[in-house]
Design a protein around this nucleic acid. Structure first.
Lengths: 378, 378
DNA sequence: GGACTAATGGTCAGAAGTGAGCAAAAGTCT
DNA sequence: AGACTTTTGCTCACTTCTGACCATTAGTCC
């Protein structure tokens, strides 16, 4: 509990901790000593005086261990080793096909993990926790995917079992939830945030009060299949079987399809995004249109959810400004002024990293809440 | 804390409390004794044995005090006195015009409150807390309305000051949030619920984990002005200045307007609802259409929020089955099966009471969390 | 009736946190 | 240099909660 305050930067000294927790100086002092002797905290010199004795600064010892972060995508997987502040020490990626099923894919993950660990000079015994993001719904408590539509063969597969090599807890969650944690950053602010991932599909991580909101069946944030009316009455079929789903109109797949139809020389979404970034008029128009469509949906969600912030991430979000422009245009036009006025809409600063960082953060947070660590500090 | 478990029915004996709180028998026993001597709990005979000595049942003593519940509407106000289980002991209503401003309206409320108190044989000194629901946004911590669109003259008025006669805390909140509490019931389940009020306007109370969710600016649940595409391309102006807001198309005002346009002999929404209840074909059609329109919006919210339950309330909700039919049709057609399958959509059992019950519950919950009561139990 | 079981009460030593008080350290301000 | 302030460490009496143990009560099961 004290650890959390220091890690998130809310407290930098014992005195801060006393003020924050309301506990007595006595208790705080004792606990801090325990944490220091358990090597989870360090003293870090003196701070700036405010008229009296300057505080002894406390620092979270992020070198006290490392975690394995796995960002499993549909066509590729990224594995990273980070310290306990989610700083990436080493990382490696590899193309895969998620449809090959859990056994071969996770064997590849295992190989990559050993490779990265070796690169940064660590051994499996140094790993304190493993965090995995997968592109589909997951029963968080068991780490088993639950009827994932784009991960055939993965239903109910015990993903944690693939990390038996590491004698530590393994946490598995939906990639969008994981990314949402990554976008929150280690700052751990207690805000209500939407993290919208626009990749091939469209998903949304929902943060209520700084924590992931999952809903009744754990499917909250599934905005990719919200029905969108087309102004021209056009009907677009979605892979889910319905018509006019958001992601069928404004997702990465749709963007690529429309780009090809418009005669652009592209074969992947990434190329469309690159063209837009280079200022190609047609690509810009397509991206902006996608932004507008996404914006109409987000406008409704802003009215309903009244978030502090919306962060865009995923491959298409790398298009940046033109996408944002379309989204902002639609949101500010159609949301209630009270909710829209203070709303920040931004693009992730490192959309390609947030999966790994988020997986690491999830692992770190859960690990540090573990009873075993609590006991270590005694 | 123990009180909450007993009140919500999660614990019925000391043994239950030990299991629920994880505290030692010793501690629980002492605390329970304190609560009994503070008259907040009662022993209530023996329970059903499960092989050994049967438990001594504990009951929350709902007669330990009473609360004042005020449901302030646009055209009427209802005042009730309830016990600490939100059971209504006496109630009275009166037509008002909220636009008359706070002073005359609250004077009337004060008069009504004294009248009800006298009827049930209680005095102002017996009142432990006051709960007020108002039809507009409220800064909860101060009890002041915040730029309410349909309460001219109420902005920043300190509503609690009108209850100086009662030497107790006064809690003021948006009527939809209050109703949402009422619909949750005293059961206090930790679920994610949407309570949708369809009256003249349309609003939505959002319950996350059994508690009211308010969002960044406190305007969460403001779904009345979500933009809805009209299939025929028609444009309907809303009082908010935008076009095609949900409540401009499917709210009570819209329903009345359309009913008159269709030639029905009605002058109020209530009459349209009554006609529909009597089986009038045209009225039924209008209500069902409104349900469908509301359903399309709720379908999006179901995908996003994945609630356990949706409860419909407010004047139009009294139409019951035809409204529900329209909503269910749209929701089940357009929401993801995983989220929709387990979703319950119901109509409030007593839409006209939930405002008062909710206001009472809000007052009770906040009051029992007060430090003064905690101290009383010492 | 007798064995067993579950719920409760009471006692007591020990662990943990609280609050107050005192002292020392290391700055700022005059 | 001396007064003052803030941070930290340490002690000590006091309170609260815990866990263990034993006893009592009031049921069920055989």
């Amino acid at each position: 509990m004290l650890l959390r305050h220091v890690r998130t930067g809310r407290a930098r000294s014992r005195a801060d901790l006393v003020a924050l927790t309301g506990a007595s100086r006595n208790t705080v002092s004792a606990r801090v000593d325990q944490l220091i002797s358990a090597n989870l905290l360090e003293e870090g010199g003196r701070g700036w005086s405010t008229g009296g004795r300057p505080p002894t600064l406390l620092r979270f010892n992020s070198r006290a261990g490392c975690v394995l972060a796995v960002d499993l995508g549909v066509t590729s997987v990224d594995v990273a080793v980070t310290d306990l502040s989610a700083q990436i020490l080493g990382t490696v990626g590899h193309p895969i096909d998620i449809a090959d099923g859990p056994a071969p894919v996770l064997a590849e993950v295992d190989r990559l993990a050993q490779q990265v660990l070796a690169e940064v000079g660590l051994t499996p015994a140094d790993v304190c926790a493993v965090g995995v993001g997968v592109p589909g719904p997951v029963e968080f408590s068991t780490g088993r995917p639950s009827h994932p539509p784009i991960m055939p063969g993965w239903h109910d597969y015990p993903v944690p079992s693939a990390f038996g090599r590491y004698d530590c807890p393994v946490y598995v969650d939906n990639d969008v939830n994981v990314m949402a944690l990554g976008e929150m950053g280690v700052a751990g602010s207690v805000q209500d945030v939407l993290v919208v991932k626009v990749g091939t599909g469209i998903g949304c991580g929902v943060i209520v009060d700084g924590r992931v909101y999952r809903g009744a069946q754990g499917s909250a944030g599934d905005i990719g299949h919200i029905h969108v009316a087309q102004p021209d009455g056009r009907t677009v079929a979605c892979r889910c079987g319905q018509d006019n789903c958001l992601e069928a109109i404004a997702g990465g797949g749709a963007l690529l399809r429309d780009a090809i139809a418009a005669g652009l020389p592209v074969a992947t979404v990434r190329e469309v995004v690159r063209l837009a970034a280079q200022g190609d008029g047609v690509a810009l128009g397509l991206v902006r249109d996608a932004g507008r469509t996404i914006g109409t949906v987000l406008a409704s969600l802003v009215n309903f959810f009244n978030p502090h912030r919306i962060v865009m991430t995923g491959g298409v979000a790398q298009a940046g400004v033109p996408l944002l422009a379309g989204i902002r245009e639609a949101v500010y036009r159609r949301s209630m002024p009270l909710a829209a006025r203070a709303l920040e809409i931004t693009v992730s600063e490192a959309p390609d990293l947030s999966g790994r960082v988020g997986a690491a953060l999830m692992a770190i947070e859960e690990y540090l809440d573990e009873d075993s660590v609590q006991a270590l500090a005694r």
